[in-house]
Design a protein around this nucleic acid. Sequence first.
DNA 1: TTTATATTTAACTAAATGGTTGAATATAAA
DNA 2: TTTATATTCAACCATTTAGTTAAATATAAA
Lengths: 113, 113
Amino acid sequence: MVNHYEDNLNDIFHALADSTRREMVQMMAERERTVSELAEPFDMSLAGISKHLKVLERANLVERSINGRTHICRLNTESLSQATKWLQFYERFWNNRFDLLESELMKAKKNEN
Amino acid sequence: MVNHYEDNLNDIFHALADSTRREMVQMMAERERTVSELAEPFDMSLAGISKHLKVLERANLVERSINGRTHICRLNTESLSQATKWLQFYERFWNNRFDLLESELMKAKKNEN
DNA sequence: TTTATATTTAACTAAATGGTTGAATATAAA
DNA sequence: TTTATATTCAACCATTTAGTTAAATATAAA
């Protein structure tokens, strides 16, 4: 059994583990962007940006539509919320743990009196 | 200016971009674990697990206390919620976009009549 | 039809990653 | 004091990554 869900999470987290790519995501969060727009803020070759874009696409974080000679890139919510869901699931555990700790502390405090 | 926040996000997302490490996180979410406990489900050398653990520690996702010859590993909420916050911030943008789209569709529907 | 623009592809490189094995360290148990 | 257990460290290896430059492709503009 191949686990596509796991593969996808690998790709998503990997894609987000790079400052340049996260900045690109930020830019696309504001609005759609062409490849050269995405490249503009960075001191990096267009080929370099093109590669980063591919990593984001592999993770399904970005979709592209080709309009003449310019490519228009936009974010895809689906993958992002997959990652968020994973994180939030485990945060819940911690928060429960903390709630537990807190209630223990409250008990302890009561017994002080 | 060095950006520690960005570095940290790189480390966190990188740490989470590996199935083995995510499973280790899951285990520690349930309760504290020793290194050998963490290693048990995997078909991998202890040295391998030890390295994965280091990656999680570098990301501040895990803290370790040494108790005799066994090391006890537990999760650190802080880093996880840093990642969650980053993700949620950008999800907000998308959701706003979707709300906008939705209201446009409503308008269009009205004009149909 | 020629030239300029937008982008990708290919080939290359240095560094990082994910794994291994074998030896080292430190502590606990016999 | 010897032996067993828990863990890390060091050295190594194959693969992936993040970047480069130069050439290729495709479209738009002169």
